[in-house]
């Protein structure tokens, strides 16, 4: 893509300084930009603010401050225009129990001119669903897949998926993730995929955003996270003091053993420790889950320190 990210048309999602306050929870100063043609994994613990963010993007929750634009449409005022090109699925979304999958497909077809009948049929087979079966007769996994079918066959430009794989068995999850990857073959289509399952996100996403307690605490492309974050195991002389390097998230020492977690690992970090007399025992890659947990803990520690100072 040659478009600059400053060009509104280059962004599927543009949230700037968005805040929303509830009695016991606040979404604070959210800045989130999703370039067209990318998949962003949106990771947070339960209650972190993922669903609220998604609902603001759908225009179904009004933000109190900031600006939200989806597919170039300001939200929530132009939500009707925006929703023609948004496919939204959430963990708590259900189809109509008394109606069949085919009824839902016919209903969606009657609404969306973009409905692709052949693709819908293909998905029915791929997801192992019987079109004539009523929703109440489907298993949980089949219901989730049927819900995704309803949005995928519309071929929307943007998919907002709020924990879509929760409760799916590994086979169903694999089918769903594969289908989502196929969606991205069309480079104009974008996905914001929220989950607390980092394995799914790691498999699927180009960009990763971490959210905790209503604040975005990290946003980078996946490769940067996986390349820069390291756990370094050191043997350190008793009296040696390890320098406070930038990017150190956590430092644990037990006698001569030290474990450092850094989000800015490079040769300079290793050389600096060695100059202090430390011996590097191992430099370990971190999984996205470990990175997420470390980032959350660091953010919470910072918040606690700020609160006490």
């Amino acid at each position: 893509m040659n478009m600059s990210l400053d060009t509104p048309n280059a962004l599927a999602i543009d949230m700037r300084n968005v805040s929303k306050r509830y009695q016991h929870f606040a979404l604070q100063d959210i800045n989130l930009q999703l370039p067209k043609g990318t998949i962003m994994g949106f990771i947070g613990a339960n209650g972190a603010g993922k669903s609220t963010t998604m609902r603001i993007l759908m225009g179904l929750v009004r933000h109190e401050q900031g600006e939200v634009t989806v597919n170039g449409c300001p939200m929530p005022n132009q939500q009707v225009a925006a929703k023609w090109d948004i496919g939204f699925a959430s963990e708590d979304m259900r189809l109509y129990q008394e109606a069949s999958v085919q009824w839902h497909m016919n209903y969606m077809q009657s609404i969306f001119p973009s409905w692709d009948i052949q693709y819908a049929k293909k998905l029915v087979q791929k997801f192992d669903i019987r079109a004539e079966q009523k929703i109440k007769g489907l298993s949980h996994g089949q219901r989730v897949k049927a819900g995704l079918l309803m949005i995928l066959a519309r071929k929307p430009k943007l998919l907002l998926l709020d924990e879509p794989t929760t409760g799916l068995d590994p086979v169903a999850r694999h089918e769903v993730l594969n289908e989502l990857m196929d969606v991205l073959l069309d480079e104009d289509r974008s996905i914001l995929f929220s989950s607390h399952n980092t394995h799914d996100i790691e498999q699927l996403s180009d960009q990763i955003t971490f959210i905790d307690k209503g604040k975005i605490i990290g946003c980078e492309d996946k490769e940067s996270y996986l390349e820069k974050w390291r756990r370094i195991r050191l043997t350190v002389p008793e009296n040696a003091v390890l320098p406070p390097l930038q990017g150190i998230i956590e430092q644990r020492r037990m006698g001569k053993q030290a474990v450092i977690t850094t989000k800015r690992f490079d040769d300079h970090v290793a050389n600096t420790y060695q100059k202090c007399g430390a011996q590097i025992q191992a430099v370990e890659n971190m999984t996205l889950e470990e990175i997420f947990v470390s980032e959350v803990q660091a953010s919470r520690n910072n918040n606690a320190q700020e609160a006490t100072s």
Binding site: M58, G59, L60, P76, Q79, V80, A81, K83, W84, I86, G87, F88, A89, S90, D92, M93, R94, L95, Y96, Q97, I111, G147, M150, I151
Partner: peptide, 16 residues
């Protein structure tokens, strides 16, 4: 029955 999210994912506003 949690069908409201499905309905509201369609191109309608709360007032519609």
């Amino acid at each position: 029955s949690q069908t409201l999210p499905f309905l509201m994912s369609l191109p309608i506003s709360p007032m519609d």
